[in-house]
């Protein structure tokens, strides 16, 4: 495992824990898209079914379990424990527009036509667009709390570092997985506009608000 991959995983973990802590400490999930969080829970579940079939390393297994556990906890906080604070009126992205096309694509473009492999492929495609309900929510309300911005930034950094990891692996190991790379590129591009706002506003101490 190279440094990019490891830092990418840590950044992903940081994002997930940051969101959990934010909701828990503030006792509120205002400004957070429950739909994006449900999509991420679906992504982890579909991808990590190989926990039962394929052992890779203790690190790999632990991270997968933590990601899944945190992800489901977040969904539970939003839709049950702090349901009263959930901003459903602004969380109006139609997730079927993401789930249906990515599911169809997973059936058409995959490495191997087996149930686990199709689910893995579906999770890769779905992850690349799963943040859209959250970004849509931010654009609809015109702003995001600073901690939400940090969450989105860490999440964007994660896939960006994975791109460097894939360049590294291609160069030194001759390894490449085109499905993951293309989806990862799409995912990273979706964050670019946000990266710009984050660097020009949030890092200068301002709250992230979009021009009217």
């Amino acid at each position: 495992m190279n440094l990019f991959r490891f830092l990418g995983d840590l950044s992903h973990l940081l994002a997930i824990i940051l969101l959990l802590l934010k909701i828990w400490k503030s006792r509120s999930c205002a400004g957070i898209s429950g739909k994006s969080q449900v999509l991420f829970a679906v992504v982890f579940t579909a991808r990590y079914l190989d926990l039962f079939t394929n052992y890779i390393s203790l690190y790999n297994t632990c991270m997968k379990v933590v990601y899944i556990a945190c992800s489901f906890t977040t969904v539970w906080l939003i839709y049950s424990k702090f349901k009263a604070t959930y901003d459903g009126n602004h969380d109006t992205f139609r997730v079927e527009f993401l789930v249906v096309p990515t599911a169809i694509l997973a059936f058409l473009v995959n490495h191997d036509f087996t149930p686990l492999e199709i689910l893995w492929t579906f999770s890769i495609y779905l992850e690349s667009v799963a943040i859209l309900p959250q970004l849509f929510m931010v654009s609809k309300t015109g702003e995001a709390e600073t901690i939400t911005s940090h969450y989105l930034f860490a999440l964007g950094v994660y896939r960006t570092l994975y791109l460097f990891n894939w360049i590294w692996r291609y160069h030194f190991e001759g390894f490449f997985d085109l499905i993951a790379i293309v989806a990862g590129l799409v995912q990273t591009v979706l964050y670019c506009d946000f990266f710009y706002l984050y660097i020009t506003k949030v890092l200068k101490g301002k709250k992230l608000s979009l021009p009217a």
Binding site: D9, H12, D50, N54, I56, K64, H111, E117, D177, A180
Partner: peptide, 10 residues
């Protein structure tokens, strides 16, 4: 690319 070998990334 050898999918049968499993996916070692997260």
């Amino acid at each position: 690319v050898e999918p049968s070998a499993g996916h070692d990334e997260l």
